[in-house]
Design a binder for these strands. Structure first.
Length: 559
RNA sequence: GCGCCAGUAGCUCAGUCGGAUAGAGCAACAGCCUUCUAAGCUGUGGGUCACAGGUUCGAUUCCUGUCUGGCGCGCCA
């Protein structure tokens, strides 16, 4: 096993071993068995975990699903983890987890604290995740904000499965757009000096361009004048502008609790010769062809619509070649998994880059590209256009100012990434029950309040002294089950790159806690029950805090 | 024209490699605070899973086609 066992893995293993034992004992014929699926039944009457293995293996074992189930029942039922096993109608095997194992897990949560939910790995696992990677030509927008929330949460999830994760931002500080940015700044610079200049038609019009020009004029005017010609000045302005924009992006992201291990400059790939070497390597691998003095990557061999130019007839490399060089660099750094998070406007680009990775020898499954779909901002029922000129919520910074980091981060990960996200600003701004973020945080704050009250009343709390009897009720058991599931949810969410699962899980969890709170009084005259319920609340608080932290959301002690 | 994503309750969305009577939040309606936070809880109503075929013990899920919405189809980055 890659992961230290959680309940789900343990059950899967138990069923696999039971099948093997039954075969060894001659109760089942020896055969090639399908993968053992373990799932959460929709209805709690069907148990805590269920497997359709008896139905799926019926054909190959040449017995009816019910017969197979009856045989497995004997073996599976012996495990202490399992309270009882039922074999029902079409052939499902339903397992009920024992109360003892759930209660034991409570002590584990209290002992592990902040570490609960994390799994450890027998072997090291390294992940590289590249996200946001917005052009350094202006401030970050809302799409970048979604990518930032998603990428960082996925990174957090992987770290919680014991992986080492590098968060990376690719800075496109090379090429036409950067030159154009430099020209735009130079124009504004001249305007400040009172010169009348024609602003480039396709230039960058944002206010920030003027800010940069002003900054350069105040700090570096002498240097600018000493440059030989305008070409050199444009390059100079471009460099200053990129540095300014990247610094601004870095600041916004830090405020969003997202920190990158590395800001990888595209320019360095060109300067070091890595781009050229990549072209040679592709040629040596036989995946380039020449046409009219150009070099094309044979992307059609990897499912793309057409072959793609990587070197122009004047010898200049295209963006694609630099991107391949960049990803080759990531491959050579030896990661077990390389993940890119892209915006919706780049899906047409997937085939060629993924194809290039395959051509470079990346094993299947090592490299994956996630597309975060579009974000619509909704204001009073209307879609707010995210034009940079229109709409007051065009930048990430403005969004954070408006609704706060916690709400923004939660909203961006609460839906699956491939669904188009309707971001209701009015709802996000409302500090009420309609806003799910507050619902989760409220559960945490409520528990903190109970502990404050307990301290005020001088009630002693001993985490080690948990009595089982007070936990034998519907609400407490439901909470214990969800607490036990937390580590599994993390593993699933990480490997599938689906942080929204955690958001959904925490919502169910908070709901279950609020139910418990309504039904049971934590601080009472009975010291044993009080201590046990304090321990349960403590565990809920730990799971809630750890879960929110994975999503980059804070767990307030008061609200 | 081709490609990618989506279409599930009034709204926003979950639904695990194909499983059991399709779920949640919000909105609507009816209740629950002398006691640890009512930003909470309980209950009710609400569905042709876009449509038509196919695959099989079983399809919201997989395949084919049609319709609708979004996006993309540069030797820009």
């Amino acid at each position: 096993m890659r992961y230290r066992v959680n309940v789900k893995d343990e059950i899967e293993q138990l069923i696999r071993e039971s099948l093997q034992s039954a075969i060894r004992d001659g109760k089942l014929p020896d055969a090639e068995l399908p993968f053992v699926k373990v799932e959460y039944p929709k209805d709690e009457r069907f148990g805590d975990y269920a497997t359709p293995i008896a139905m799926e293996s019926a054909r190959v074992l040449r017995k009816s699903p019910l017969e197979i189930g009856a045989i497995l029942q004997e073996y599976v039922g012996k495990a202490p983890l399992v309270e009882r096993v039922e074999v029902v109608k079409p052939g499902f095997i339903n397992l009920f987890v024992s109360f003892d194992s759930l209660a034991n897990n409570l002590s584990r949560v209290l002992a592990e604290g902040d570490g609960y939910g994390r799994t450890t790995r027998a072997t090291p696992f390294r992940v590289n995740i590249e996200f946001v990677s917005a052009n350094p030509t202006g401030p970050l927008n809302i799409v970048s904000a979604r990518a930032a929330a998603l990428g960082d949460s996925i990174a957090n999830l992987y770290e919680a499965t014991g992986a080492t994760v590098d968060r990376e931002f690719y800075v496109n500080d090379y090429g036409n757009q950067v030159t154009l940015l430099g020209r735009s700044v130079l124009c504004r610079y001249r305007e400040l000096a009172g010169e009348a200049v024609a602003f480039p038609e396709d230039g960058y019009h944002g206010e920030y361009v003027k800010d940069i020009a002003r900054h350069v004029r105040e700090q570096h005017a002498a240097e600018v004048e000493s440059l030989p010609d305008d070409e050199a000045r444009i390059a100079y302005m471009a460099e200053k502008a990129v540095a300014y924009n990247v610094a601004g992006q870095r600041e916004d992201l830090a405020r969003f609790n997202v920190r990158f291990a590395r800001w990888f400059s595209e320019k360095t790939l060109h300067e070091s010769g890595a781009v050229e070497r990549t072209s040679e390597l592709l040629g040596a691998r036989g995946v380039l062809r020449e046409e009219e003095g150009k070099k094309l990557f044979v992307a059609t061999a990897y499912g793309d619509e057409k072959d793609r130019v990587v070197v122009r007839d004047d010898g200049r490399p295209t963006y694609l070649l630099a991107d391949i060089a960049y990803h080759r660099d990531k491959l050579e750094r030896g990661y077990d998994r390389i993940i890119d998070v892209w915006g919706p406007d780049h899906h047409g680009y997937i085939a060629r880059l993924a194809g290039a990775m395959t051509a470079l020898g990346a094993p299947a499954g090592r490299f994956s590209i996630l597309i975060a779909q579009q974000v619509n901002l909704i204001m009073e029922g209307e879609i707010v256009k995210m034009s940079k000129r229109l709409g007051q919520f065009s930048t990430m910074r403005e969004l954070i100012d408006e609704i706060g980091v916690d709400v923004a981060r939660y909203f961006f990960v609460m839906r699956s990434l491939e669904s188009h996200l309707d971001f209701d600003l009015a709802l996000a701004k409302r500090e009420s029950s309609e806003n799910p973020v507050f619902y989760l945080q409220y559960a945490h704050a409520r528990i903190c309040s109970i502990f404050r009250e307990a301290e005020k009343r001088g009630v002693a709390y001993t985490p080690g002294a948990v009595d089982r009897e007070p936990l034998q009720n519907r609400e407490a058991v439901a909470l214990l089950k969800l607490i036990a599931r937390f580590p599994e949810e993390i593993v699933d969410a990480a490997t599938q790159c689906e942080p929204h699962r955690i958001a959904n899980y925490l919502l169910r969890f908070a709901q279950q806690y609020h139910r418990f709170y309504t039904e049971h009084r934590v601080i009472s005259d009975d010291p044993v029950t009080t201590n046990t319920y304090l321990a349960l609340c403590d565990a809920v608080r730990i799971v809630m805090r750890n879960g929110l932290r994975l999503l980059g959301v804070t767990a307030p002690e008061r609200m």
